[in-house]
C-alpha cells in the first residue's frame, strides 16, 4: 500500500510539465554556484539547482553538443555565443520574462554578439577588463599609458601572462591598432620583441600573481580587473588597476539557455535572479566579482569598490575594445607569433 502511494505520488510529482530541477553549466566558483545564492533561489522558486562545470570553452561546447536536453542555463563568453548559435545548441531567450532586463547596460545587452537574426541568445551578465596593475609602493603616481610596460625604468620588473591571445591584443592596443584584427601584424611582432629584458617572469594564475606581487617581484604586471579587486581587498596587496588612455581588452559573459532545456521557465527566472542587484551586490561585496551589466547593481556597491570607482566611469568603458570571436587559424597564428617571441626572449 505504501509503495503504491509513493509510486503514484512520485508519478504525479515528477510528471512532465512540472520539472523540479535546474541544470546549470558554468566555470566552477563563478557566481552561480555560491551556496547562499543557490539557497535563496531554491526557496524562491521551489526548484533544485544542480551544477556541472567546464574547464575551457571547447569543453563547454562539447558538453552542449553531446548532451542535448540536459542543461538549462549555460554561461558563455560573448565571443563564443555566435558559434554556439551556429551549431544549434542554444534556444532564444524571452526578454519579457527577465524583469531586470531594462536595467542592463544597453551597450552589452543589445550587442550583436547576443542578438542574432533578431533573436536574443544571451543575457549580458558580467564584464571585465584585461590591462595591468601596478605596485603603489614602487610607483608614486598611476601610470596613464600602456607604454609603462615598455618603460626602461622598469627593466626586469614587469609581470606578463604567458598567453598568446592576450599578448597579441595588448601589443595591438599599444601600437594603436584594432586588437581583434590588427592590420600591421609586423608592428605587433616588433612591439612584443621589444619586451625582451622587461619581463621578470610569466604568471599563469591569480594565485601566482599574488605571490609574485607579494614577494615584490613585479612593479607593473598585466592583470584582470576582477582579480585586481580581490588582490587588493582579500590579500591586502598595495596594487591599483589601470585602464590606460590607449584602451584595454574588454570581455563580457552572458547567460544563455540550452536548446531543448528541460526547465526553460525556471531558467528565465534564474537568469533574472543572476542579473538582479540582490544577487550581484552580495557577490561582489562578500566574494569579489567582475563588473555587473546591471547599472543599478553597480550603483549599490560601496563607493570605494573598484567595479564602481574605476569601471563605473563611462569614459573608461568608452576606451575599451571588446573581444570578438576568433577563428582557429587566427588562434594558431597568434600562438606561433607568441612562441616565436618567447624563443627570441630566450636567445
Amino acid at each position: 500500500m505504501v509503495v503504491v502511494v509513493v509510486v503514484v505520488g512520485a508519478y504525479f510529482y515528477l510528471q512532465p510539465g512540472k520539472p523540479t530541477e535546474l541544470h546549470i553549466l558554468n566555470w566552477q566558483g563563478y557566481g552561480t554556484d555560491e551556496a547562499w545564492a543557490v539557497q535563496i533561489f531554491e526557496e524562491k522558486s521551489g526548484v533544485k539547482v544542480i551544477h556541472d562545470n567546464f574547464n575551457s570553452e571547447q569543453e563547454m561546447l562539447t558538453k552542449l553538443r553531446t548532451s542535448p536536453g540536459v542543461y538549462d542555463v549555460v554561461l558563455i563568453n560573448s565571443a563564443f555565443t555566435e558559434q554556439a548559435v551556429a551549431e544549434g545548441v542554444l534556444q532564444p531567450i524571452d526578454s519579457t520574462k527577465i524583469a531586470n532586463f531594462a536595467d542592463l547596460s544597453a551597450e552589452l545587452r543589445d550587442s550583436t554578439r547576443f542578438n542574432i537574426d533578431g533573436k536574443l541568445y544571451g543575457v549580458a551578465w558580467v564584464w571585465g577588463v584585461t590591462s595591468f596593475a601596478y605596485n603603489t609602493e614602487a610607483l608614486t603616481a598611476a601610470p596613464a599609458s600602456i607604454q609603462v610596460l615598455w618603460d626602461p625604468a622598469y627593466v626586469g620588473r614587469i609581470g606578463w601572462r604567458d598567453d598568446a591571445v592576450e599578448s597579441v591584443q595588448l601589443a595591438a592596443i599599444a601600437t594603436g591598432q584594432d586588437m581583434n584584427n590588427p592590420a600591421d601584424i609586423e608592428a605587433v611582432r616588433q612591439k612584443l620583441h621589444a619586451l625582451k629584458g622587461q619581463i621578470k617572469t610569466f604568471w599563469s594564475s591569480e594565485d601566482e600573481w599574488n605571490k609574485f606581487m607579494g614577494a615584490k617581484d613585479f612593479d607593473v604586471a598585466t592583470y584582470w580587473s576582477g582579480s585586481a579587486a580581490r588582490s587588493k581587498k582579500a590579500f591586502s596587496l598595495p596594487v591599483d588597476f589601470v585602464v590606460p588612455e590607449e584602451g584595454a581588452i574588454g570581455w563580457f559573459d552572458g547567460l544563455s539557455i540550452a536548446k531543448d532545456a528541460p526547465n526553460a521557465e525556471a531558467a528565465h527566472q534564474f537568469i533574472d535572479f543572476m542579473v538582479s542587484p540582490e544577487f550581484y551586490v552580495r557577490w561582489d561585496t562578500d566574494v569579489g566579482a567582475p563588473a555587473s551589466s546591471n547599472g543599478k547593481a553597480n550603483a549599490q556597491l560601496p563607493e570605494d569598490a573598484m567595479n564602481r570607482a574605476v569601471l563605473g566611469d563611462p569614459a573608461v568603458v568608452a576606451r575599451l575594445q571588446w573581444m570578438a570571436p576568433m577563428s582557429d587559424e587566427q588562434r594558431a597564428q597568434y600562438q606561433e607569433l607568441w612562441d616565436e617571441t618567447k624563443a627570441y626572449f630566450a636567445q
Binding site: S56, Q58, W160, D162, D163, A164, I199, K200, T201, F202, D328, R331, A332, Q335, D339, K342, A343, F345, A346
Partner: peptide
C-alpha cells in the same frame, strides 16, 4: 625557466594541446 628558459619544444607541444586545442 621563466622568460629565459621556457621556450622549448616540449612547452610548445603542451600549448598546442592545452591552450589552443590544435
Amino acid at each position: 625557466g621563466g622568460v629565459a628558459g621556457s621556450a622549448m619544444l616540449g612547452t610548445v607541444i603542451e600549448e598546442q594541446f592545452t591552450r589552443i586545442f590544435n
